[in-house]
Design a protein around this nucleic acid. Structure first.
Ligand SMILES: [Zn+2]
Ligand SMILES: [Zn+2]
Ligand SMILES: [Zn+2]
Ligand SMILES: [Zn+2]
Lengths: 137, 137
DNA sequence: TGCCATACGTTATAGCATAACACAATTGAT
DNA sequence: ATCAATTGTGTTATGCTATAACGTATGGCA
């Protein structure tokens, strides 16, 4: 169990949601929906939809994030994640490590751009690809 | 033909690359690889790889960008796109419009973060989802 | 001419995501 | 307690996205 000071506590989740979240919590890096499925076959999972439906809810609750550039998912590793509208990820292309961080200044600059263009901003995706410190050495 | 003050001129491209770029230039919004394929069947395209290989080169030349959150591709609509390492996109979820823009301040803030974490940054993805001005009215 | 690098064509396969239907469990009135 | 509405579930089938692995063709250049 990792830090989840989110609105939804662990025991408000359904069985499937809990299993999927546990799987992501236990994983060192991001997992695809299908690899989550494979890890949960022992628990009775049979079909991708069981995973996708749980993931949809977990993302809605802010407990899980989707990495667009990877078609994969990670458990949220941050407190107060929801307090900042915009989250960013750094993804190591060698070892798969993912760092989640926020930068309010970046968020504000993008919000300013949106305001100036009258673009009604719903969601912001920021993903940095590269090599983590361990992998550059 | 749109503005392409890039290193690779239109006539340095191979036939397949040219056809794919023309298709993206003509499109109003982003296109998936498969919809590009469908539009080029009349030109003799038969297989996804013909499209993906052309797209890979066009992205390498900076003439085309991939929208990660859409699994789709757009022709670059900016001069001097390559001069700024980091490009951002705003994508209207209703009409599909895509605006490409740069913001050096945002780019620098993210580079600063990477430097402070000793993360060797290779590529930055910034995608804003929401509603364009026309679609909010 | 022979070599190398790049592009191309084709078939097959792998990986990601959702539609549609039926059924069960939960909630929250009346 | 009963009913209706909502939410979660299981299952099958399907569609969309991307690449592997093979062979061939072409063009520049020693
Ligand atoms: Zn988070
Ligand atoms: Zn690494
Ligand atoms: Zn561009
Ligand atoms: Zn719009």
């Amino acid at each position: 169990m990792s830090v989840h000071e989110h609105s939804h506590e662990r025991d408000e989740l359904t069985r499937n949601q809990g299993l999927v979240l546990d799987t992501l919590d236990d994983a060192k890096g991001p997992l695809s929906a299908y690899s989550i499925l494979d890890r949960l076959r022992g628990e009775g999972f049979r079909a991708p939809l069981q995973v996708y439906r749980a993931l949809d809810k977990l993302m809605e609750f802010g407990l899980v994030h989707r990495l667009e550039s990877l078609n994969a998912f990670v458990a949220c590793r941050q407190d107060e994640c929801g307090a900042h509208g915009t989250i960013a990820f750094a993804i190591c292309e060698k070892c798969g490590m993912v760092a989640e961080f926020t930068n309010d200044e970046v968020a504000h600059l993008l919000e300013d751009w949106a305001r100036s263009e009258k673009f009604e901003l719903a969601k912001t995706t920021i993903e940095l690809r590269g090599l983590c410190e361990a992998c550059t050495a």
